[in-house]
Nucleic acid binder design. Sequence first.
DNA 1: ATCGGCTCGCGCAA
DNA 2: TGCGCGAAGCCGAT
Length: 462
Amino acid sequence: MKLQVIHDSRIQSLNDRDLRQGSFVLYWMQQSQRAAYNHALEYAVQQANQVGQGVLVVFGLMDNYPEANLRHYTFMLEGLQETKAVLGKRGIKMIVQKGHPADVALAAGRKASLIVCDRGYLRHQRQWRKKVARKAGCRVVQVESDVVVPLEAVSGKAEYAARTIRPKIHNHIKDYLVELKPTKIKKSSLQLGTKGIDLSDISAVLKKMSLNRSVGPVSHFFKGGTAQARQIFADFLRQRFKNYVENRNQPQTDDVSHMSKYLHFGQISPLYLALQILKTDKGYKDAREAFIEELVVRRELAMNFVYYTPNYDSYACLPNWAQKTLAEHKKDRREYRYTRRQLENARTHDEYWNAAMREMKSTGFMHNYMRMYWGKKNLEWSTTPEQAFKTTLAINNKYFLDGRDANSYTGVAWVFGVHDRAWFERPIFGKIRYMAASGLERKCDIQAYVKKVDALERQSRK
DNA sequence: ATCGGCTCGCGCAA
DNA sequence: TGCGCGAAGCCGAT
């Protein structure tokens, strides 16, 4: 049987240890929480087939995950439940165990011949993998499955802007837009004795966990899982894709893909989405290009940012020109100033901004165009830019299903000048790009957006 | 409705 | 070293 192609650039040994005479190959799943289009999983299957063993998949479910709350945990568990079931049908046992992910991986890996892990670009994700590689008694191999073009193949440094990374990505993208079909397994792992928690009742699992419950689930808007993601994306391609170019910056419409939350939890593969786009009618050339721009160029610029910028979550990550100009305007008079509480309660004088905040709280999502406006106003209405940065990131990560993503950190930093250029100097913002309510009125039907959010809020109260 | 100016720095051409 | 141009804009002039 022909092996599925996994480029060498996706595969990295994280330690120098050898394969061991164990009883299975362990796939420690953490970022890529899916059964399909998962290079780490397929690599593990290939390796297991070679030594005549099965693949055990383990996921570490942690109490009090930093900044996560009931909303995020619910969405994630909905996805994990499905992934476990789908893997089971393929003869692959998946267990979810409570504990710190690295500890769970190490414990499950004691009898493994080899540990395979997937890849994440945030600080803690990298630390966990490092720890497992250091302490494991066998070889640990990391397989990238979270971007279309592996980061190091694109660039070895923090890119300055979209325009600098764009040609570098397009130089390689063709090589990586290749199908990844499931490799047939030679030996089932379903008989392995290792026990995990029962995922059949998600609310029962959640009840027993220690976690922040201040923000409720949004399953009636967005349910977690690969099947849901595929369904939403298929609907997008069928109904909304034709409007994408015209409407993607029109917040009163819903002509967006809604994939970012599924991408964040690894429930859908960016490669799968890109390949689906290639299958669309060639007549939608502009929409195809615009979507690939968002999915690959901008998303992978965000990955590049967090990977090569150690302090991606602090104010000091901003470029010098941005910090300088904001410092020069620190003392400027602020006509409006709101506390974090006022902001979170959507109690500002600006009904457009309030609507954006309400959409975020009630659905776990905010239209992309409003995310920019929302962030820019946080900067305008905070006492200092440093405080604005902190508050914006905190609220972002609290309510968005895709909070704490590389795109969250990059999106917030963009508000303060990252990947952007200088503009006409004005109060508070200095040379940072400004956005105004009048711009919303000029460019979109912002009243219709407010009404849309009113309706969404009513729906969420039901 | 459309246009130019504003402004910084990267990366390429020379 | 010079020059073009860019993650989503604003504003005033025409």
